[in-house]
Design a protein around this nucleic acid. Structure first.
Lengths: 134, 134
DNA sequence: CAAAAAACTTAATGTAGATTAAGAATTTGA
DNA sequence: TCAAATTCTTAATCTACATTAAGTTTTTTG
């Protein structure tokens, strides 16, 4: 477990190997996966350091990470990573608003081609915003 | 109309006054509002300049804008704006995955307190990911 | 200002996905 | 290595929201 809901001044995790996951719990205690973090991805809570974080982050495989401060000024060379991140989130919102569960599944396969067999179907459902049964 | 779907090298719009809207059309031609841009907000397509953009952007009120190049290097002082943007998007994804239409409506009221009476209910429905009837 | 277009309202019906349940298969961990 | 926990599967039932339709109000525009 790398980060709990509500912590302040949380870190940003650059994944060298392994697999991270960030998620929320809703008021019924149900888990909703926000993002997977396989090799090369960056995982963090997208809120300013002084605001309590909204996500849990844990590793679902043994992982090697670079742990970075959230403070942006220092990583302006990472601007590319931020644009990419915004692009992924934008697409995710569009899919959640306008696509069926099946279409979102197909888009998931494209976004994370390498992790299909590294996560449970329950986790995929959680990422898609549906139940494992569906 | 400021930006059409599929354009390259699109701009970023800093809203001084008025109200912008970015949206997609799904395969049925249905409109899905991605973001509103009232005074002080920044609206743009979050994809790299060389990738065809995914959003339409238009003004729904007479507006005054600063038109900025998408190129990030130049605006590293705007890093704050990017963090804020990521935070808004993160929350939006979480809400779309785990909250009911009514809860999303309430969250919309908090996110955009000043525009409730400046947009049609049809647009609010489009933003929430539901039909106007619902 | 008047006609046309767009938005709103209400209501009946339809459906994607949720919920619940319970047994089978797989994974985990002492 | 085996018991416990978790995940998967199937199926019946339920529900939030979609779809359709048609009349009404409001806004836009020539």
């Amino acid at each position: 477990m790398l980060q709990e809901f509500g912590e302040l001044n949380t870190k940003v995790y650059h994944v060298v190997s392994g697999l991270l996951r960030s998620y929320t719990l809703d008021k019924k205690g149900k888990e909703h996966i926000f993002m997977f973090g396989p090799e090369g991805w960056v995982v963090g809570d997208n809120v300013p350091p002084e605001i309590p974080c909204q996500l849990y982050i844990d590793a679902i495989e043994d992982s090697e990470l670079y742990v970075l401060p959230k403070d942006l000024k220092r990583e302006n060379k990472n601007a590319e990573a931020f644009i990419k991140r915004l692009g992924v989130l934008q697409k995710r919102v569009i899919m959640l608003m306008s696509a069926s569960a099946i279409e979102r599944y197909e888009h998931f396969e494209e976004t994370y081609p390498d992790i299909m067999n590294r996560v449970t179907q329950k986790m995929i459902a959680s990422y898609l915003g549906i139940t494992p049964e569906a």
